[in-house]
Computed example of a mutant assay.
Amino acid sequence: MTLMVRDEADIIGSMIDHSLAQGVDTLIVTDNGSIDGTVEILESYGDRIVLRHDPVQRKQQHSVVTGMARDAATEFGADWVINADADEFWLPTAGGATLREVFEQLPTELRTFQVEVVDMTGAPALRGSGLQRLVYRDTRPVARLNELGIHSHSTPDAVHIGSPDIEVAQGNHFVNLEQNGEVPAGLGIEVLHFPWRSWEQFEGKVAKAGRAYEANPVLRPSPNHHGMREYHRWAAGALKAYYVIRHPDRDELEAGIRDGVFVEDTRIASAVPSVVADEPLDDDDVTASRRWGPVLAASEAQSIGEIRARDARIDELLHYVDEGKQRIDGLIEDVRILNERIGTLQRSAAMRPVRRLLRAGKRVVVRVTKR
């Protein structure tokens, strides 16, 4: 397993303990300049992990993870490689089995496959690891997520065989291998994801990620990139409202449990302790966020809709411009051909007197010759 981490002291120890208990042979961990105690936690594992340091903070995840994934194959002989994040807890979908038991049965001929990432939710909090608080699998429709300012559920991750030529895309969601066949029944794997553990953790993560993207002129995230959307909200002072409303209130949670939208899953809560105890948000903060958050999200959605409509109109106009350019190019070609014909005619007309003189001279020569 590879990990690139930065300031994840509230969860990194729990995640590593869980991964080792699941039978991961080797964890290659690169710390990205943490200052919150994450380095000390990593160092406490000694030779149970391979610890590296890359303090440059320009969102160079693609190159760093690719390097670790290649080393997993060339230095450690990995049959399979998981490129994980600190807030991801990897599990078999079949109860009772460990990751190691599943991977021992997976044919390497698969080469790679996608693993579903399930966002876990529950009540918001000011601080705390939240593993015993965030115990519901979030399966809300995407339309509902959009109402809350969330673009979509998390993208699946890519597992792959050990390869010295592997390329891991930014975000760990794709690799440069093609899947060969289907995962055998009963050998499924999934990820329980804890991205919004507390307001303290979430705000810090958003601010750091946004600044790191801004510091890297090569990376150009799309307008829908969740990190940059959150960063712009943070810069505008609106992020806390968005943080609160993405967690269901009591009524939505109860209704969602009845409808199967929120499904309780306590596998992590019952097996992995939270390092940082939960501390609730101020009631007034929660009340204000739940009142104004939906208004902000609706206003943002309207603005995004207007921008997309504008962009669609621009694309349509560009299409017309392109058609017009093609027509103009056709007319220019017609003019060129016409000019060539005119030139030919002009040259032909200029030669007429010469041809007349030649014909007249020929007649004179003929007459002289006959005489």
Rank of each mutant, 00 (worst) to 15 (best):
R250T: 10
V275W: 13
V261Y: 08
E254Y: 02
K208G: 05
E300C: 02
R233C: 00
A288E: 06
H232R: 14
A236N: 11
G227K: 07
P221K: 14
I307Y: 08
M228C: 07
A212D: 08
K208E: 10
V272G: 03
A212F: 05
P217E: 04
A212T: 02
D278T: 14
S274H: 09
L296H: 08
G204H: 07
A236G: 05
R250G: 03
D284S: 05
V276Y: 04
K208H: 04
A271S: 15
V218S: 07
D249K: 02
R290G: 13
G204S: 11
L219C: 01
V295G: 00
V218F: 02
D249R: 03
A301I: 01
P217T: 06
V276G: 09
V244A: 12
E306W: 09
V295E: 04
L239R: 03
Y243I: 10
K208S: 14
S274K: 08
I307W: 11
V244Q: 09
R290A: 11
R211V: 15
A209N: 10
I304H: 08
G227I: 07
D285N: 05
R211M: 14
D251P: 03
L281Q: 06
V244S: 11
E230K: 07
I268S: 02
W292R: 03
D283K: 02
E279V: 15
Q302W: 14
A297H: 09
V206Q: 02
A209E: 13
V275M: 14
L253G: 03
A255D: 08
R291G: 01
P217R: 04
G237H: 09
E214C: 05
A288D: 09
Y242H: 15
R258F: 06
W234T: 00
R290N: 10
A238D: 12
N224C: 02
A215S: 10
Y213L: 13
V244G: 10
D265A: 13
G237C: 11
V263A: 02
S289P: 00
W234M: 01
G237Y: 10
I245D: 06
A298M: 12
V276K: 09
P294E: 12
